[in-house]
């Protein structure tokens, strides 16, 4: 369920204005990217590359400042941290000159291989069950570090792919926001600056979580309709 911090009318007006400025971010959301769809991803990325440039963090900051890019920019977003993101679609994204944006629940990467499917099922991480039989389905930390070192963006999608609400206990909030960032920052050797709530909640819906995000050092919330630079 999508939740907004204001009314429907306010959201419609803000979105209309935002689209009118011409600096809206175009993205393509991917989750699992199984090999049997590789030709489809390749065709999509090739078509996008004809008319779009990629976007990195510096580029997003320029959009935030109101810059309208010479050519449209597009962000391939890879949700959940699946192994097939690294194996299948990342080489294509690089070949076509785009920057991949990985939105990962870091706990998934640390789950033992024989428990990853049970974790994914419990945490609503949807994947094709006939892919990688008997093997891991999550990326490894080494793979994520490698992608990050090659210039791709890593963002936090909560620690365990858990929905955070105003009623979520403090200790769980802290694990999902603060501990997650500490794990990312230590593993990547660089700060992760973007947080995306499960279900794409935006700033203002969960004041305790918002305060914790700022305190932890996140700079942006990536939500269903907006990318918000935190106050």
């Amino acid at each position: 369920m999508i939740r907004l911090s204001g009314t429907i009318a306010e959201a419609v007006r803000d979105l209309s204005d935002g689209l009118a400025w011409g600096n809206a971010i175009r993205l393509v959301n991917y989750h699992s990217t199984p090999g049997f769809r590789a030709a489809e991803y390749e065709a999509q990325l090739a078509a996008l590359a004809e008319t779009h440039d990629g976007l990195d963090m510096a580029g997003m900051e320029r959009l935030m400042q109101g810059e309208v890019p010479r050519r449209p920019v597009v962000v391939p977003v890879l949700f959940e941290g699946f192994r097939d993101n690294y194996d299948v679609i990342l080489p294509m994204i690089e070949r076509h000159g785009f920057t991949a944006w990985f939105f990962v629940p870091p706990a998934f990467l640390g789950i033992p291989v024989d428990m990853q499917r049970a974790f994914a099922d419990r945490q609503t991480l949807t994947y094709p069950h006939d892919e990688y039989p008997g093997e891991r389905i999550a990326m490894t930390w080494e793979e994520l570090r490698d992608a990050h070192a090659r210039g791709h963006v890593v963002a936090c999608h909560s620690r365990t792919h858990t929905e955070l609400t105003p009623e979520t206990p403090e200790a769980i909030l802290r694990d999902e926001i603060v501990l997650a960032k500490q794990e990312f920052d230590a593993a990547l050797g660089a700060p992760v600056e973007i947080f995306c709530f499960l279900r794409g909640a935006e700033y203002g819906l969960n004041p305790r979580a918002d305060a914790m995000l700022s305190e932890a050092g996140y700079r942006y919330i990536w939500s269903n309709f907006r990318v918000q630079k935190l106050p």
Partner: peptide, 23 residues
């Protein structure tokens, strides 16, 4: 869960580090 889904996102600066642009 396994196909690309295009979307648009609107940038919003809540830090008030710049004046809001005119539409």
């Amino acid at each position: 869960a396994e196909v690309g889904v295009p979307m648009f996102l609107v940038p919003e600066d809540l830090s008030m580090s710049r004046p809001p642009a005119d539409v």
